[in-house]
């Protein structure tokens, strides 16, 4: 069975691709130990124990990397035409956001986000419908498993030439590849969620005479939702990476195409500035998806407890 526990080989990071209850419980105990293992009379005083909190240390780390970047470029350790100083890049970032190039940047961002959102919505709709159809019947699950497992690892970028042949260098091509990349992730999470519906709860609902659509609302949907939200969160990042990749490779309009253009114009500063901005965009999307996940699942406190167990 394709359960997320066995690993949907997709997200950029495995945080929830491996929802392992044991790990979670271990972590909470470990947290407790760390919290309590801070004796007042400790012999080994480290930074952290001198009251340097984690956020402060994190900021120190970021500043250190920026300083290394700036200095290595300024002192000529790295050829500045390959790696312009951070300060120069930041000026360019500001220029992209509010200055001369802002029109070009925001238009490109709009195109990228258009491909991202439409692709995500389509894969979500397809994934939910097909996932529920497949997941709700054990027999169907068994007979589709091999096909899904076979098609899932096919790299999305392999489809770029096909998408171009069919749709041309237009947003539709981007959307098509994004859908391919995200659909499988949503699909296996939905299937796993539907398969996870507690047979006892389902039987109870049946015995109380709940009609099947009401049963779906009361029993199936709350179980599937956490799985779906995990899949959606993973897809937020995947869709962004795929969209920008296609834009870079085939110059489909968007941030990626803008990066490729400035690279061929040998304007490295803008390339770095755009790379930084895509990082910020990636972080923002990740944060947004987490907020969405938390707020959606907060409506189902019982479900939430179940997932965290």
């Amino acid at each position: 069975m394709t359960r997320p526990a066995a690993g949907p080989a997709t997200g950029v990071r495995g945080d929830s691709a491996d929802p392992d209850a044991r790990t979670t419980s271990n972590r909470s105990t470990r947290m407790a130990t760390i919290a309590s293992a801070r004796p007042t009379g400790s012999r080994r005083a480290t930074f952290a124990r001198k009251g340097w909190s984690t956020p402060v240390l994190g900021a120190v780390g970021v500043l250190a990397i920026i300083a290394i970047w700036e200095l290595s470029s300024r002192l000529g350790l790295v050829d500045p035409s390959y790696l312009p100083p951070f300060s120069t890049v930041i000026v360019e970032v500001v220029d992209l956001l509010v200055g001369q190039r802002s029109g070009e940047f925001w238009a490109a961002l709009g195109m990228t986000m258009y491909g991202w959102s439409v692709g995500l919505v389509i894969s979500l709709a397809l994934g939910i419908v097909i996932g529920v159809l497949i997941g709700s019947n054990r027999w169907v699950r068994e007979y589709t498993n091999s096909t899904i497992e076979f098609l899932r690892p096919i790299p999305s970028v392999g489809l770029i030439p096909i998408a171009i042949v069919i749709f041309g260098v237009r947003p539709a091509a981007t959307i098509a590849v994004v859908v391919w990349a995200c659909f499988w992730v949503i699909l296996i999470h939905v299937i796993a969620g539907v398969a996870d519906v507690d047979p006892v709860a389902d039987a109870t609902a049946r015995s109380y005479g709940l009609k099947s659509f009401r049963r779906a609302g009361h029993v199936v949907w709350p179980t599937v939702l956490p799985y779906l939200m995990t899949g959606l969160r993973l897809c937020g990042t995947i869709a962004l990476v795929v969209a920008i990749t296609i834009e870079i490779v085939v110059q489909a309009p968007g941030i990626g195409a803008m990066i490729a253009t400035y690279q061929s114009a040998a304007n490295v500063t803008v390339v770095y500035a755009l790379a930084l901005l895509t990082g910020v965009l990636g972080l923002a999307i990740n944060l947004l998806m987490r907020l969405l996940e938390n707020s959606v699942l907060a409506w189902h406190p019982s479900v939430r407890a179940e997932v965290e167990k």
Partner: peptide, 12 residues
């Protein structure tokens, strides 16, 4: 750094 899509580094 993880949030930067790796293909972005390709031109550089």
């Amino acid at each position: 750094i993880r949030a930067v899509p790796p293909p972005v580094l390709l031109p550089v």
